[in-house]
Amino acid sequence: MHLFEILQKEILCPSVVRMVVKAPLIAAKAQAGQFVILRVSEDGERIPLTVADYDRIEGTITIIFQTVGATTLMLSRLMVGDSLQDLVGPLGRATETVGLKKVAVIGGGVGTAIAYPVAKKLHEQGAEVHCVVGFRNRDLVILQEEFSAVSDRLITLTDDGSFGEKGLVTDALRRLIETGENYDKVIAIGPLPMMKYVSLLTKEHGIKTVVSMNPIMIDGTGMCGGCRLTVGGQTRFACVDGPEFDGHQVDFDEAIERSRLYGEQERHAYERACNLFGQEVR
């Protein structure tokens, strides 16, 4: 058995893949909210991915990712029986769920894959869990069965109305709050603008809100500071101080600009990776 062998692979929707990877040491420690860093190839990029699930007995972890760049594209091409080049974790702090009785879990896009283990953990500890998950369109909808199983209420939305309700997660959350649902906490995981607007909404209503930040990162141990962000006026490192932070304190506009830093170089690398693929199938 190779280290970090891929044991299962499933295409959840055209751009989102789930993989179960052999990693006994990580599986033994992983908790909801923590992440791993992996490399697909020698000389490849290190990318952080949140642990979507784990099986301590089988010694496996599950990752769910969207093919957005060169590395995730290469990762998506690996098959069952292939191995990851490197895998390290669990890193970061676990989600704090102690004492929570009623929680709204908000997921956007592939972020729903990270929101799921949090919802599951809350459900298992007996909390009332309302999940609001949003996607661009029906082709991108994932994990509906999984969410149904752990939610007391599940609202699924698409931007274009092709599945579930038409609208944004903030629309549904606003409605829930305004119809009298009292949440101890809102946990929002998804694209930065989504987390920003969820936080603005809950701030109006004075509901504690936690967001999961996924900035550009290299080592994941606090060494490079590339993942830093401003929280309540202080500089924090997402890798060791997070990845979860108080949504009302995060400077989202700064985080959004930082996430765009390498947009052009990443697009270039992605195109190159696509071209390589083109040559292979010719």
Partner: peptide
């Protein structure tokens, strides 16, 4: 000693500001 220090001056988290650790690691 892997934890980079910053000066805590305004603008240190702007895009394009690196710790030497990050720059050299890249």
């Amino acid at each position: 000693a892997g934890l980079p220090r910053f000066m805590n001056i305004p603008g240190e988290n702007l895009g394009g500001v690196y710790s030497a650790n990050e720059f050299l690691t890249r």
